[in-house]
Amino acid sequence: MPTILGQNQYGKAENRVVKITRDGDTHHIKDLNVSVALSGDLDDVHLTGSNANCLPTDTTKNTVFAFAKEYGIESSEQFGIHLARHFVTSQEPIKKARIRIEEYAWERIASSEANSKFIGADEVNHSFARKGQETRVTQITFDGEKWEVISGLKDLVVMNSTNSEFWGYIKDQYTTLQEAYDRILATQVSARWRFNWTDDEQRMPNWERSYEQTKKHMLEAFSETYSYSLQQTLYQMATRIINHRSEIDEVRFSLPNKHHFLVDLEPFGLKNDNEVYYAADRMYGLIEATVLRDGATAQIPVDMTNL
């Protein structure tokens, strides 16, 4: 039976690179997990086994580490742009490069009063602890002419202990859920946002500031929205980002509803006045949506928030 080769790509996944920048006695850490995927004139390597157009995946791995030294890591986005440009412009058979990066944050360990007299500061300049918050992510795609940069975060757990209701929904013979007029609203945020920067000659966004400000507006909207549904909160979070960050045209959220159910304490002669909850990890409602700037076209893949 005849067959046709479809979409294909290859590369080295999950290259863990840690870059230490030594600014005198003060050190700075960038901790990345970089995955490279290349595509182009690669039919022969599949159909005949010829490797003439194949850049070894080991070479892509080496390039990641070499570029960490050569260019440093100013931001995940900038580092991914350097890599994508290199693979497409240096290897004629490679027509497109996709770089996916997870970034793990570290924070400085505060010094004790006893130690501070030796270092003369409130923080140790070379000791760090991994932050237990979100993982920053980005995907850079380059085809030799245009860029696509999609950034975001995952595993950011947030909660409102009040100012959330859920009632007035459809009820049928299988509905048992009680209406709630004061509930906990909690979710583990997975978000992606697409930048409208597409040309290397145009002015790039300030990637670091853009990330911090986007996260700030996201969290402010979550905190300030009096919620009647997680869908409503999602829309407010995305709208706040688009209204305040001109460099972003599209936001996609995947928000699992981390349910908290009131525990029935009446068998013990106790009244539960919205104080004691059971935190359920399964099953969970999963709320997903894309919000676009007016006139923009959706381009973030639906499954990207699972990366």
Rank of each mutant, 00 (worst) to 15 (best):
D143A: 10
E179A: 15
S35A: 04
E70W: 12
P205N: 06
E208N: 15
T297L: 06
I140N: 04
L286K: 00
S76H: 04
A13I: 15
Y174R: 12
P301Y: 03
E113I: 14
E134C: 07
F195R: 04
R85G: 07
L286Y: 02
R245F: 05
A279L: 10
Q213L: 14
E107K: 08
E103S: 13
A121N: 15
S75I: 05
R130K: 15
A238W: 00
E74A: 03
H244Q: 11
Q133Y: 03
V302E: 12
F118M: 12
G168Y: 08
W147V: 01
I300M: 01
T187V: 09
H82R: 13
T225W: 13
D58N: 11
P205M: 01
Q236A: 07
V36Q: 02
L230A: 01
V124T: 05
P267K: 01
D281C: 11
T175E: 09
H86N: 04
E74H: 09
E123M: 13
I4G: 04
M159K: 09
F261D: 05
E77T: 02
I241S: 05
N272K: 13
V137P: 00
W193K: 08
D303A: 09
T162W: 06
Q213F: 15
P301L: 01
I170P: 10
Y104S: 03
E266R: 15
L83R: 05
D281A: 10
N51E: 07
N15Q: 08
T297P: 00
G152I: 00
K69A: 12
S151E: 08
I73P: 02
A121L: 10
Y174T: 15
Y278D: 13
K258F: 04
H28A: 07
S116P: 02
E92L: 11
E103K: 13
M159R: 15
M204R: 12
G152F: 02
N53E: 08
K146L: 09
D41W: 11
V302L: 09
I101Q: 04
M237L: 04
A105P: 02
S127N: 07
K154Q: 10
L219E: 06
R209M: 15
D303P: 03
G132V: 00
K30R: 11
G295M: 06
F79Q: 00
D44M: 06
T135R: 08
D44W: 02
S50R: 04
D264M: 04
E145Y: 06
L286C: 03
S223V: 10
L234G: 00
D43A: 08
A238L: 08
G295P: 09
N160T: 11
D172T: 12
L307C: 07
E165P: 02
